[in-house]
Amino acid sequence: MSPSAKSVGSMEIREGKEKVVAAAAAAMEDVDDLEAPSTPESILLSSVSVSTSSTGSDRTSRALITPSLKFLWESYRTSLETLKNNSRLEMIYQSVAQKAFTFCLVNGRKTEFRRLCETLRVHLANVGKYYAQNSMKGEREQGGHHQINLGDPETLQRHLDTRFAQLNVSVELELWQEAFRSIEESWV
Rank of each mutant, 00 (worst) to 15 (best):
112 E>N: 06
58 D>S: 03
37 P>D: 11
67 P>R: 00
82 T>M: 10
131 Y>M: 07
107 N>F: 09
40 P>C: 09
73 W>F: 05
97 A>N: 00
94 Q>K: 13
137 K>T: 06
109 R>M: 14
90 E>P: 09
53 S>E: 07
63 A>D: 02
93 Y>L: 06
64 L>A: 06
54 S>Y: 07
125 A>I: 10
83 L>K: 00
47 S>P: 10
121 R>K: 15
66 T>M: 03
78 T>P: 04
44 L>M: 09
137 K>H: 07
94 Q>W: 14
73 W>Q: 09
125 A>Q: 15
143 G>H: 05
60 T>G: 01
102 T>L: 00
118 E>V: 15
134 N>K: 06
60 T>Y: 03
67 P>Q: 05
76 Y>P: 06
121 R>A: 08
68 S>K: 07
103 F>T: 02
118 E>D: 15
69 L>S: 04
102 T>W: 00
77 R>W: 13
70 K>C: 02
122 V>C: 08
61 S>T: 08
73 W>E: 10
144 G>V: 07
68 S>C: 04
56 G>I: 07
111 T>Q: 14
125 A>K: 12
126 N>Q: 13
127 V>H: 03
37 P>T: 08
97 A>P: 09
69 L>N: 06
79 S>C: 04
100 A>R: 12
84 K>Q: 15
96 V>D: 07
143 G>M: 05
85 N>T: 13
79 S>Y: 08
52 T>V: 05
71 F>P: 03
43 I>Y: 11
145 H>T: 07
104 C>N: 01
138 G>A: 14
119 T>V: 12
143 G>K: 10
103 F>E: 04
63 A>M: 02
141 E>V: 01
116 L>Q: 08
53 S>P: 02
111 T>G: 14
91 M>P: 03
112 E>V: 14
86 N>I: 07
143 G>S: 11
145 H>D: 11
132 A>Y: 09
78 T>M: 08
136 M>G: 13
136 M>F: 10
88 R>Q: 11
102 T>F: 05
71 F>L: 01
41 E>R: 01
70 K>D: 07
101 F>E: 10
74 E>D: 15
116 L>E: 15
71 F>R: 07
132 A>S: 13
62 R>A: 02
90 E>C: 05
59 R>S: 01
115 R>I: 15
70 K>T: 11
46 S>D: 02
52 T>G: 02
94 Q>E: 04
114 R>D: 06
37 P>A: 09
37 P>L: 14
110 K>M: 09
124 L>I: 11
59 R>M: 02
120 L>V: 07
85 N>P: 05
142 Q>D: 12
72 L>K: 04
84 K>D: 09
68 S>N: 12
132 A>C: 10
88 R>C: 13
47 S>G: 09
